[in-house]
Nucleic acid binder design. Structure first.
Length: 925
RNA sequence: ACCCGGGUGGUGGAACAGGUAGACACGCAGGACUUAAAAUCCUGUUCGCCGAAAAAGCGAGUACGGGUUCGAUUCCCGUCCCGGGUACCA
């Protein structure tokens, strides 16, 4: 009886399917547990070994919770809309629906191979009308709502209209237009169109205008990372900023609640910090500075600052170059320089602008006047100030801000020191603790106090006011693309009119060409019938479907509602969410916002989607390289090279080679010759009879030939080995390169475990004898460790513990059923196939999936003494075994009698003996 | 540039609340079984010094430079390198 994993795994996968072993019901007397993986995008490249890392972790946790008696929801589906499928369609003419379908089938086959416990009856695909009907429905909920700042909640827009009719907007500041003020009478007098324009400025999903990266040559809008140095990545065409009509989500209204919610959820501190920084709440003031300019067209410059206390240290102003006011500021002398600089900035993406180390900027020729001492302050423009944040203009205080300091140094702007000796003339000091100097009426005042004093003063003078700002902007919610959800919106006389609920889903129509429409519109604008119906031609972005999918899994077939309220009340929040940090400030913020809005409107009973988040690290690729003598078919083994790029002084080209035809670092030269036609005539210069490849850690990607298909690993070693090996690689949250070379060890472990139960010739060896104390100690140590490690997602150390357990039981020659069968249950979440097989072989009824997690009993592992490390002055010198109940005096007496300690004391008497119970002893001389 | 994370033997990693650095594996070396190989089993394996070897011992050591502490991989300050994110990749 040998461990034939292939046969065993296929048998149980089939069996579990037949018995519906993973079907989950929405009602149960057992406590619920919802375990979710981040939604995968089904890419054409298929699954590589990096993808399943998180899925295996969540699968283990799900199975563990099931053994612990929970009703576990662990679903899977596909975030199926997206740019790559559309790009593929443009290049190959294949409809995205078809390629997406193929990709999904491929993904599914690969997933099935690994033996996950997903309830596939709950699969969802965002691109199916049955799903996106509800994405559209939720969009309409947002469209038909506004954020009531008085109670901090989303409410129906009808409530706002009612308020406008009776009192105007006196109690409801307009988020889209802060200065808007009207009375009930005004409202009554407005045209319907005007009213709708006003309401648009309140809606949670609204239409506005925004700048995009426009590439005229491609006729399309580009993502930031498709733009490199002002030109398109594909083709190198010029890219400029263009203003387009866009949909937005008013996520900024939720900024405070998104911050507050972080206190109630278990995300890592790093993740909370990233979200907090992204939201970027700051307290400061807006201050108006009088302007002295040649044109005289602008009388004040409004800046936002978090440090009004430094107002006497302002040495220059910086205005975002794209602000309209720049035109009014420039003097005739500076006009040429300003215009030239504006041209430069136009070609720069926001990312490039922020990443730029080189300091650039131009003086406008205008001055602002310090309201307190009348000093003339030159107004500059520079790309380091962005139009979208604050007022798009800052007051620069070089002695207190590093970027301002560098700018001043670069342009030789004199620096005013307002913090005395705390400024060293070389580096800015951003302290808030200095006593102000050179600061008029603020001299001698601590900066912290001065903040309030200045705000009070500018408010009294009517030249500014206290202001809370957020770095976060409203989320752009439309794409000029085909492969996304259509908006359920019609445009009538320039007014957006929502479709009736009964008209949903508004299905994505078929198109013959995926080319963009006219004027930067999406492909839908090319369809005459669509345009004739006055339907919105934008589609929703990738994160629309993924912002609420966790709700649909609860009730995936419901055609009356996105999710029945009773069902969402039962499942509630996701208890464990596993996914990568790359979603930190995108998906994770959007879905939190959607959840809050749905909660406010009474559709669900909780306002945070994910109770606990565990981040999974990336599995990187370990690329392999061959070295070709330039212009020949001769390949040089790595060890023979002089340098990476030269062999005996001649040039060598470094080429990626498929990692799958390399064993460790040794190339299979025969396979290499058949890999690509180019290499058929390859000749090799070997070292020690081998061709040794170079290596590098890179992102796993098809183009680098470093992807490894999990199918191959499963084929060779089995799914159970694959699952455990991925966990054994290291902590789930750490990124690491994939390397197959350690997998043998995990496979050997499973075979060794198998041999505890059975022998190839003799068959089953398990006995009904009573276990010894030593065996029970091993078992219970392992129960405790596995439970602890699984609870804290330390799967790599859990695998180690299993290995230790099996090694020890092997040394004890343990064949006792009562011990071994409990070990099987412990291991089931990690290696379900093998455990189910042996569970059945040793004569158990029913499935090991529901066997119940073993109970740890302390009595079997109790120790009475410990071998203490004894250090002299912090250096461990010897080890002495002492009973655990010894007290300080007893311990001192024992160690003073120890020859090793006596030797190290060299006749001196110790100053102090530090004794930490159950840890260590340190003798200080 | 900014925000977040990471850096420990030849390799992946362990050390969970500041207490024996290197668990568990891979690889490598030696041995057993075998005609041989595979599989399996046993022994050793941070580096340096001492030593014929074994045993024992000494010194150094967790990216680098400082600090706090009886004691630092762990806490604090600074530096370097790598990864993720920076708003239309998902």
């Amino acid at each position: 009886m040998e461990y034939s994993f292939r046969q065993i795994e296929q048998k149980w996968q089939q069996q579990w399917k037949t018995t519906n072993a993973y079907k989950v019901f929405n009602d149960s007397t057992r406590p619920k547990c919802y375990v979710l993986d981040m939604f995968p995008y089904p890419s054409g490249a298929g699954l590589h070994v990096g993808h399943p890392l998180g899925y295996i972790a969540s699968d283990i946790y799900s199975r563990y919770k099931r053994l612990k008696g929970y009703n576990v929801l662990h679903p899977m589906g596909y975030d199926a809309f997206g740019l790559p499928a559309e790009q593929y369609a443009i290049e190959h003419g294949v409809h995205p629906a078809i390629s997406t379908d193929q990709n999904i089938n491929n993904f599914r086959k690969q997933l099935d191979n690994i033996g996950f416990c997903f309830d596939w009856d709950r699969e969802v695909r965002t691109c199916e009308p049955g799903y996106y009907k509800w994405t559209q429905w939720i969009f309409l909920q947002l469209f038909n709502s506004f954020f009531n700042r008085h109670n901090g909640k989303a409410e129906p827009i009808s409530a706002l209209v009612a308020a406008f009719e009776t009192e105007g907007n006196i109690n409801h500041d307009c988020p889209g237009n802060a200065r808007l003020r009207f009375s009930a009478a005004d409202w009554a007098g407005f045209t319907e169109k005007h009213r709708q324009e006003i309401l648009m400025d309140y809606r949670l999903a609204y239409c506005g205008y925004g700048e995009v990266n426009w590439c005229e040559a491609l006729g399309t809008v580009l993502a930031n990372d498709e733009v490199v140095n002002g030109v398109s990545e594909r083709g190198g065409h010029l890219v400029i900023k263009k203003r387009l009509r866009q949909w937005y989500l008013r996520i900024t209204e939720y900024a405070d609640r998104l911050l507050e919610g972080l206190e109630r959820i278990e995300f890592s501190d790093a993740m909370k910090e990233m979200q907090t920084n992204w939201i970027g709440k700051s307290f400061g003031a807006e201050i108006d500075f009088a302007v002295k300019s040649e044109q005289g067209a602008l009388n004040k410059l409004r800046v936002y600052t978090t440090r009004p206390d430094t107002i006497f240290g302002v040495d220059f102003m910086v205005v975002a170059p794209e602000l309209d006011i720049v035109e009014c500021l420039k003097s005739s002398g500076q006009a040429a320089a300003v215009d030239e600089y504006l041209d430069y900035v136009k070609s720069r993406s926001e990312r490039e602008r922020m990443a730029e180390k080189k300091i650039s900027g131009v003086f406008t020729g205008a001055y602002a006047l310090n309201p307190f001492d009348g000093r003339e302050i030159p107004i500059w423009i520079s790309e380091y100030v962005l139009a979208g944040y604050g007022t798009g203009a800052i007051m620069a205080v070089p002695c207190g801000d590093e970027r301002d300091h560098k700018f001043a140094e670069h342009f030789n702007i004199p620096i005013t020191n307002i913090i005395g000796s705390l400024y060293n003339g070389v580096e800015a000091n951003p302290t808030k603790d200095a006593l102000l100097e050179n600061s008029g009426f603020l001299n001698g005042v601590p900066m912290r106090d001065a903040i309030e004093i200045v705000i009070g003063k500018i408010e009294a003078m009517g030249i500014g006011h206290r202001k809370v700002n957020f770095r976060m902007r409203d989320a752009a919610f439309s794409r000029q693309r085909y492969w996304g959800e259509p908006f359920p919106i019609q445009w009538k006389d320039g007014v957006a009119v929502p479709l009736e609920e009964s008209a949903l889903p508004l299905e994505l129509p078929h198109v013959d060409s995926y080319r963009p429409g006219p004027e930067g519109e999406g492909p839908l604008a090319n369809i005459p019938e669509w345009v004739a119906r006055e339907l919105e031609t934008n589609t929703m972005p990738g994160y629309a479907g993924s912002s609420w999918y966790f709700l649909r899994y609860m009730d995936p077939h419901n055609d009356k509602s996105f999710c029945d309220r009773k069902v969402s009340d039962y499942w509630g929040q996701v208890d464990l969410y596993i996914g990568g940090t790359e979603h930190a400030v995108g998906h994770l913020l959007y879905s939190r916002m959607w959840t809050k809005a749905l909660y406010d409107l009474g559709h669900i009973g909780f306002d945070e989607p994910y109770k606990k988040l565990v981040n999974q690290g990336m599995i990187q690729g370990s690329s392999r390289f061959v070295y070709r003598l330039h212009g020949t078919h001769t390949y040089i083994s790595k060890g023979l090279l002089d340098r990476e790029d030269s062999y005996q002084g001649k040039q060598v080209d470094k080429l990626h080679v498929d990692v799958n035809i390399v064993d460790g670092y040794e190339l299979d030269t025969n396979e290499f010759k058949t890999w690509k036609p180019d290499f058929a005539d390859a000749e090799f210069i070997l070292e020690d009879g081998k061709y040794i490849c170079g290596s590098e850690v890179e992102k796993m990607s098809k183009s680098k030939f470093n992807t490894v298909n999990p199918d191959l690993i499963v084929e060779k070693f089995g799914a159970d080995t694959f699952r455990m090996y991925e966990m054994f690689l290291g902590p789930v949250e750490i990124s690491k390169p994939w390397d197959t070379k350690g997998i043998e060890g995990v496979h050997r472990f499973l075979k060794k475990l198998w041999r505890l139960f059975a022998d190839e010739e003799k068959g089953l060896l398990v006995t009904n004898e009573t276990p010894t104390a030593a065996e029970l100690k091993v078992l219970h140590k392992t129960i405790r460790k596995i439970e602890e490690d699984t609870e804290r997602f330390s799967f790599n150390t859990a695998v180690s513990s299993f290995m230790i357990c099996v090694n020890e039981l092997h040394d004890l020659k343990c064949r006792k059923k009562s011990v071994l069968e409990q070990l099987l249950v412990l291991l089931t979440p990690y290696a379900p196939h093998l455990c189910e097989e042996l569970w059945q072989q040793i004569g158990n009824e029913g499935s090991v999936l529901d066997a119940g997690f073993p109970k740890f009993e302390e009595q079997y592992v109790r120790e009475s003494s410990k071998a203490y490390p004894v250090a002299i002055n912090g250096k461990t010198r010897t080890e002495i075994t002492i009973t655990l109940d010894a007290d300080q005096q007893q311990v001192e007496a024992i160690i003073m009698a120890d020859p090793a300690v006596v030797k190290w004391l060299e006749g001196k008497s110790p100053k102090k003996v530090i004794y930490v119970k159950n840890k260590m002893i340190n003798v200080v001389i």
